[in-house]
Structure formats: C-alpha cells, structure tokens
Amino acid sequence: MKHRLSHLNFNDIEIPELNIHSFEMGDYLLEVDYNDHKGYVFDDNDNIVKFKNVTQVKEALNECRVKSAFLVHQSAYDEMCGAADKGDNELKVEINFNH
C-alpha cells in the first residue's frame, strides 16, 4: 500500500502509528498506518519520499495528528562481526511527535 504525502497533512487526519525507518546513507523513509493500511509515503510523482532527519518528517506532517511515532533502525551488527544471524535485529524506539 502506498500513501501520498499530499493526502496526509491535514488537521482532520489522524495517523495511529508512524514509523520513521533509518535507512542507508542517512536517509529516512516514512511508513504510516492510515485507514487500516500500512505503507510507505510517496510523492505525487510516485517516488518514495526521503527525509534527511526526523525534524523534516515532523515539518512535513505539521497539520495532521500522530498518535504514536517510532524511530526504526535495522542493525547489521551480527553480520558485521561474523556472528550467527538472529533474524530480526530491529530497534524500534518511541519518539515524541508533538508539534
């Protein structure tokens, strides 16, 4: 499921959960759960929206209401040190998304 950034930032929109995924080279990708559909956020040209920091995400969604927000990072630690793969190395930390 894709969500359009231009359709989310309105004061009558409430997003139950928002995940900001820390990605390669300092990019952050935004995944939202809206209208019972979880998906990444795209622009009107069908390109995934990339942010440089959490502040940019907050500014992009300054009108809507976010109930809970998380910063999500996938660690490659096990792979880097040659340890056995544990499966899911996701770190998910709740952040304050109040405007």
Rank of each mutant, 00 (worst) to 15 (best):
N9W: 04
A60Q: 01
H99V: 12
A83H: 12
E90L: 12
F51K: 02
D85N: 14
E14K: 11
V72C: 05
C81W: 04
E14L: 11
E14W: 08
T55W: 01
M80Q: 14
N53D: 14
D27A: 09
N35W: 08
H37F: 11
A84M: 13
G82I: 06
V66S: 06
Y77D: 12
H99E: 15
E31I: 01
L30V: 02
L29C: 03
F97E: 06
E14S: 15
F51H: 02
F70C: 02
N96Q: 06
G87D: 03
D85T: 11
L61G: 00
H7R: 07
M25R: 11
R4K: 15
G82E: 09
K52N: 15
D12L: 03
H3Q: 04
Q74G: 08
F10W: 11
N19W: 02
V66N: 07
E14T: 12
E59N: 15
N62A: 10
T55H: 13
Q74W: 11
F42R: 01
N35L: 15
I48W: 01
K58T: 02
H37R: 15
S68G: 05
F42G: 01
E17N: 14
D12S: 07
D44R: 00
H73I: 03
H21L: 09
N62W: 05
D43I: 09
C81Y: 05
N19G: 00
G82F: 07
L18C: 07
V57A: 00
Y77N: 12
A83G: 07
D85K: 13
V93K: 07
H73C: 02
N47W: 03
L71C: 06
V41C: 04
A76Q: 14
K50Y: 11
D27M: 07
S68V: 11
F97K: 02
H3G: 00
K2A: 06
G26H: 07
G26W: 04
A76W: 14
D46M: 10
G82H: 12
E63T: 10
N11P: 10
N62I: 08
Q56R: 06
Y40G: 02
D12T: 08
L29D: 01
L8V: 07
D88V: 10
K86N: 15
F10T: 11
F23G: 02
A60R: 00
D43C: 12
Y77F: 12
E14H: 10
Y34A: 02
G39R: 08
N45T: 03
V54M: 05
I15G: 05
T55Y: 06
N47Q: 14
H7M: 08
K67F: 11
M1S: 15
V54R: 04
D78K: 12
Q56S: 12
S6A: 09
L91F: 10
